Computed example of a mutant assay.
Amino acid sequence: MRSFLMYLGALAVIFGLMQFIPTYEKSNPPVEISKEIKVPKEVMAIFKRSCYDCHSNETKWPWYADVAPMSWVVRRDVIQGRKALNFSTWEEYSDTKKQELKKQIFRSVEFAMPLPQYLWLHKDAKLSKEDKEIIRNWASDGKGYIESVIR
């Protein structure tokens, strides 16, 4: 019993010390409406519910984003998400980049996004079959499929 309490105490000390490891500050850069993605309301509602926390400058930072080690994971996911695709700066992308991102969105909504670890705590972000169809229809410019170029 005594050794269990010692291990438990050691874990508590380690957890406490982890809170002092610096991470980048949580931030939401200003959003300029003119640069934000322009999509139909039904698509925007899905994006806001399921994508915007990691893929926009409008992240809703949860309380656990201040508690290590979860803070490290949350902040990493937001940084990588914004780097890959940022709906808040969509209009800054070239037309070619927008088309490539739409192809990636078309493919990723089926199986990869939102990330499983995000869905653990955000059940409402799970994409229904109808949500996926709406997004894929938008991403394919209404065709329902994405043309591939074979090289």
Rank of each mutant, 00 (worst) to 15 (best):
K48E: 11
V31M: 05
M113V: 06
A84F: 11
W120V: 03
K48I: 05
T96Q: 15
W138A: 03
Q99F: 15
A12V: 15
D95Q: 15
N28W: 01
W63Y: 13
L101E: 12
E36I: 12
Y93V: 08
Y64V: 06
F4P: 04
V149S: 14
V67R: 10
E42P: 10
K26F: 08
T23S: 09
I146L: 07
T89M: 03
Y52F: 12
Y24K: 11
E32F: 10
S27F: 12
K126C: 00
S56F: 04
D66Y: 07
K129H: 08
M18T: 13
Y93I: 05
Y93A: 08
D95E: 15
F4H: 07
G81V: 05
L121I: 00
V31Y: 09
Q117G: 11
F15K: 10
Y64E: 05
E36N: 12
M18F: 12
S3I: 15
F47A: 05
L8W: 04
T23F: 10
V78G: 07
F15D: 07
K35V: 10
D66G: 10
M70N: 13
W90D: 01
K83Y: 12
E130Y: 05
Y7Q: 06
H122R: 02
R2K: 15
M113N: 07
N137H: 11
T59K: 00
Y118F: 04
K48T: 10
E130A: 09
T96S: 15
P22Q: 00
N86M: 01
H55C: 02
S71D: 13
K129L: 08
E42V: 10
L127G: 00
T23G: 08
K41M: 12
E133W: 10
G144S: 02
K35E: 13
G144L: 03
S128E: 07
A112T: 14
R107P: 04
A65F: 03
L115H: 08
N137F: 12
D95C: 11
M70T: 12
N28Y: 01
W120F: 09
I33P: 09
L101T: 12
S50N: 05
F47W: 08
F20W: 13
A84R: 14
P29K: 02
A125L: 03
V31P: 09
W61Q: 07
G142F: 06
I14T: 06
L119K: 01
D95F: 13
D141Y: 11
R2E: 06
G142S: 02
L119Y: 01
K129P: 09
K83W: 12
S140F: 04
K97E: 14
V74W: 06
Y7G: 10
M6I: 15
S108G: 12
F15I: 14
W61G: 08
P62T: 04
Q80K: 15
